[in-house]
């Protein structure tokens, strides 16, 4: 085995590497965002790219989320390939107009005459003590909008491959990056490769319960699966990876095998990702295979609190997943 084959780097280094490769290969790729230059980005993802590619291509914007996102949209519309970093995904609320009314709709409104190949990177999620305005998981909001593609990689391998795949798209792609994943290490090949946008990935095969999870919840579901294995509960874990377009086909196939479904996601439970996945099952022929009601395990119906105990209580933890999976195998329709 060569060094490259076993090389492990972090999730944030994987994103860095994808951006560097893209910038080397294509002059049209530019980075925009707040403090992404000499500061290296709030989460140190852009790192030293400004020294490698210069301030003309690694552009520190003023603190102007709406305007900055709009400039990225306009540049994408006219031949550039901007990657726009929101410092926190929460700040995308300031730019909803450009994301939802402009980027998402422009191609359709103009009858297919234009495309908007903009990529937006959005660090999301709780677990860092940053409280209510720096910890949200709003990806379901954006996944509700036709015209956007919304992805949420959970491994360093996918973080690099899906960003490089996004750069081959001609549509706006929003990448939600859970902040707790940035330091996670994993195998990442050197050089260029892509991981397709759309298909989910089964991270663990099992026969008793299907868990569909997103972002950090994939890691927690895999941890829960080990505990449940000790109780003879065999869990299948599907990493959704792409919210729009959603790979319902794989979920349906899995539920037909396990007859039980648990959806685990960090965003607020009500009207969230779990509702969509549950509906996909209910609307499909997997419905007849269900041996127990579907369980949605999402964030609490409150903002993300500050105090560590409260913060943990506000989003699903490994114990919660274990408890829900046990419930599922005991309950019968």
């Amino acid at each position: 085995m060569t060094d490259s084959a076993i090389r492990e780097i972090s999730f944030s280094q994987a994103i860095y590497e994808a951006m560097a490769l893209a910038m080397e290969a294509d002059e049209r790729v530019i980075l925009m965002g707040e403090d992404i230059g000499v500061y290296g980005g709030a989460f140190q993802v852009t790192g030293d790219l400004v020294h490698r590619f210069g301030p003309e291509r690694v552009i520190d914007t003023p603190i102007s989320e709406l305007g900055g996102a709009g400039v990225a949209v306009g540049a994408a519309l006219t031949g550039m390939r901007p990657i726009f970093e929101f410092q926190f995904s929460d700040f995308a609320t300031l730019a909803m107009e450009q994301i939802v009314n402009q980027a998402a709709k422009m191609r359709y409104m103009l009858g297919g005459e234009v495309s908007v190949p903009v990529i937006m990177r959005l660090p999301c999620g709780s677990g860092s003590g940053a409280a209510a305005q720096h910890s949200q998981s709003l990806e379901a909001w954006f996944a509700h909008v036709p015209g956007l593609k919304v992805i949420e990689p959970t491994t360093p391998y996918d973080a690099k491959g899906m960003l490089l795949a996004a750069l081959e798209q001609n549509d706006p792609v929003l990448i939600f990056e859970h902040k707790l994943l940035y330091k996670m290490k994993g195998h990442v090949p050197e050089g260029h490769y892509t991981v397709p946008i759309g298909p989910s990935e089964t991270r663990r095969q099992g026969k008793d319960v299907t868990i569909v999870a997103t972002a950090i919840m994939v890691a927690r579901a895999l941890e829960a699966a080990v505990i449940l294995e000790g109780e003879n509960i065999d869990v299948e874990v599907i990493d959704l990876r792409t919210l729009r377009p959603m790979d319902t086909e794989s979920i349906i196939a899995s539920v037909k095998r396990t007859s039980r479904l648990l959806c685990v996601y960090e965003g607020v439970k009500t009207l969230g990702i779990g509702a969509e996945i549950s509906a996909a099952i209910v609307e499909s022929d997997a419905f007849g295979f269900l041996d127990a009601p579907v369980i949605r395990l999402g964030g609490q119906e409150c903002p993300i609190p500050y105090s560590p105990g409260l913060e943990r209580a506000s989003v699903p933890q490994v114990d919660d997943i274990v408890r829900c999976a046990r419930d599922l195998v005991r309950r019968k329709i």
Binding site: R28, E56, G67, A75, T78, M80, Q102
Partner: peptide, 16 residues
């Protein structure tokens, strides 16, 4: 809505 988009188009012009 079109104002930052025009600025983005100007950014393209400059880069290109």
């Amino acid at each position: 809505g079109g104002i930052p988009i025009a600025v983005g188009a100007a950014l393209s012009i400059k880069h290109q």
